[in-house]
Measured scan of single mutants.
Amino acid sequence: TRVETATETAWISLVTALHLVLGLSAVLGLLLLRWQFPAHYRRLRHALW
């Protein structure tokens, strides 16, 4: 049971790290898009909202 718990903890930390990385890359990508294509971003936002 001790090994299982350790594996579970490792998986949880791995998944958390993955989610953090994905979230950060998504935010960075959005910022980059907004910085590179302001007109396109505004049009996209206008279409979405």
Rank of each mutant, 00 (worst) to 15 (best):
residue 40 H to Q: 14
residue 33 L to A: 12
residue 39 A to C: 06
residue 19 H to E: 05
residue 23 G to E: 03
residue 5 T to V: 03
residue 4 E to D: 10
residue 5 T to C: 03
residue 4 E to V: 13
residue 15 V to Y: 07
residue 37 F to Y: 15
residue 48 L to D: 06
residue 3 V to I: 14
residue 9 T to L: 12
residue 10 A to W: 07
residue 15 V to H: 07
residue 25 S to A: 13
residue 27 V to F: 12
residue 14 L to P: 00
residue 37 F to Q: 04
residue 14 L to G: 00
residue 15 V to M: 09
residue 14 L to M: 10
residue 42 R to V: 11
residue 49 W to I: 10
residue 16 T to A: 13
residue 13 S to R: 07
residue 26 A to K: 05
residue 41 Y to L: 10
residue 13 S to W: 15
residue 19 H to C: 06
residue 25 S to F: 06
residue 15 V to S: 02
residue 23 G to F: 14
residue 13 S to H: 08
residue 29 G to E: 04
residue 5 T to M: 06
residue 45 R to N: 00
residue 19 H to L: 01
residue 1 T to K: 11
residue 20 L to V: 14
residue 48 L to Y: 03
residue 39 A to R: 14
residue 7 T to F: 09
residue 42 R to Y: 14
residue 12 I to A: 10
residue 9 T to A: 11
residue 42 R to N: 15
residue 31 L to T: 14
residue 13 S to A: 14
residue 12 I to Y: 09
residue 10 A to T: 11
residue 44 L to E: 01
residue 14 L to D: 04
residue 46 H to A: 06
residue 10 A to G: 12
residue 38 P to M: 13
residue 31 L to M: 10
residue 30 L to E: 02
residue 39 A to D: 15
residue 36 Q to D: 04
residue 49 W to Y: 04
residue 17 A to G: 07
residue 3 V to R: 01
residue 42 R to A: 10
residue 35 W to I: 15
residue 36 Q to W: 13
residue 27 V to Q: 00
residue 46 H to L: 08
residue 31 L to R: 04
residue 38 P to Y: 14
residue 34 R to C: 08
residue 47 A to G: 08
residue 29 G to M: 13
residue 6 A to V: 05
residue 33 L to E: 05
residue 36 Q to G: 15
residue 40 H to C: 14
residue 41 Y to W: 15
residue 43 R to N: 09
residue 44 L to R: 03
residue 20 L to D: 00
residue 4 E to F: 12
residue 21 V to I: 12
residue 12 I to L: 12
residue 14 L to A: 04
residue 47 A to Q: 09
residue 43 R to K: 12
residue 49 W to Q: 05
residue 12 I to F: 07
residue 21 V to R: 02
residue 22 L to R: 02
residue 38 P to I: 10
residue 48 L to V: 12
residue 23 G to Y: 02
residue 38 P to C: 06
residue 1 T to C: 11
residue 16 T to I: 14
residue 33 L to T: 05
residue 5 T to W: 01
residue 23 G to L: 14
residue 12 I to P: 02
residue 25 S to G: 05
residue 3 V to Y: 01
residue 11 W to N: 05
residue 6 A to G: 14
residue 28 L to K: 06
residue 5 T to L: 01
residue 44 L to I: 14
residue 39 A to T: 15
residue 10 A to I: 08
residue 9 T to W: 14
residue 32 L to A: 13
residue 38 P to Q: 15
residue 21 V to A: 14
residue 21 V to H: 00
residue 27 V to T: 11
residue 32 L to Q: 03
residue 5 T to Q: 00
residue 29 G to N: 01
residue 47 A to L: 08
residue 47 A to W: 09
residue 4 E to H: 11
residue 15 V to W: 08
residue 46 H to Y: 07
residue 40 H to P: 15
residue 11 W to L: 08
residue 7 T to E: 05
residue 8 E to W: 01
residue 30 L to G: 11
residue 46 H to S: 10
residue 38 P to S: 14
residue 40 H to S: 10
residue 14 L to N: 02
residue 17 A to D: 01
residue 16 T to Y: 04
residue 34 R to K: 15
residue 41 Y to F: 15
residue 7 T to P: 11
residue 39 A to M: 15
residue 24 L to N: 00
residue 24 L to Q: 06
residue 23 G to M: 12
residue 42 R to Q: 15
residue 20 L to S: 06
residue 45 R to L: 07
residue 13 S to T: 14
residue 18 L to G: 00
residue 6 A to L: 09
residue 39 A to F: 10
residue 48 L to I: 14
residue 36 Q to E: 13
residue 33 L to C: 15
residue 13 S to G: 13
residue 13 S to K: 03
residue 3 V to Q: 01
residue 11 W to T: 05
residue 9 T to D: 08
residue 3 V to F: 07
residue 2 R to T: 14
residue 7 T to L: 11
residue 8 E to C: 04
residue 24 L to D: 05
residue 4 E to T: 11
residue 23 G to N: 06
residue 32 L to H: 08
residue 43 R to A: 12
residue 37 F to K: 03
residue 48 L to Q: 04
residue 16 T to W: 00
residue 48 L to H: 06
residue 8 E to Y: 06
residue 37 F to A: 06
residue 8 E to D: 10
residue 45 R to M: 07
residue 30 L to R: 02
residue 46 H to W: 03
residue 8 E to K: 07
residue 44 L to H: 01
residue 9 T to E: 08
residue 1 T to Y: 12
residue 38 P to W: 07
residue 44 L to W: 08
residue 10 A to R: 10
residue 16 T to R: 00
residue 41 Y to Q: 01
residue 46 H to R: 10
residue 2 R to K: 13
residue 28 L to G: 00
residue 34 R to H: 06
residue 49 W to V: 00
residue 37 F to T: 06
residue 5 T to G: 00
residue 37 F to R: 04
residue 23 G to P: 06
residue 43 R to S: 09
residue 42 R to C: 08
residue 43 R to V: 09
residue 14 L to Y: 04
residue 19 H to Q: 02
residue 41 Y to S: 09
residue 12 I to W: 04
residue 46 H to D: 10
residue 5 T to Y: 01
residue 30 L to Y: 07
residue 41 Y to E: 07
residue 34 R to T: 08
residue 5 T to H: 01
residue 20 L to I: 12
residue 29 G to S: 13
residue 49 W to K: 08
residue 43 R to L: 07
residue 20 L to M: 11
residue 26 A to L: 13
residue 32 L to N: 04
residue 25 S to L: 07
residue 24 L to K: 03
residue 2 R to V: 11
residue 47 A to V: 10
residue 31 L to H: 04
residue 38 P to A: 15
residue 42 R to F: 08
residue 24 L to F: 11
residue 29 G to P: 07
residue 29 G to R: 03
residue 6 A to M: 10
residue 16 T to N: 04
residue 43 R to H: 08
residue 18 L to D: 02
residue 35 W to T: 15
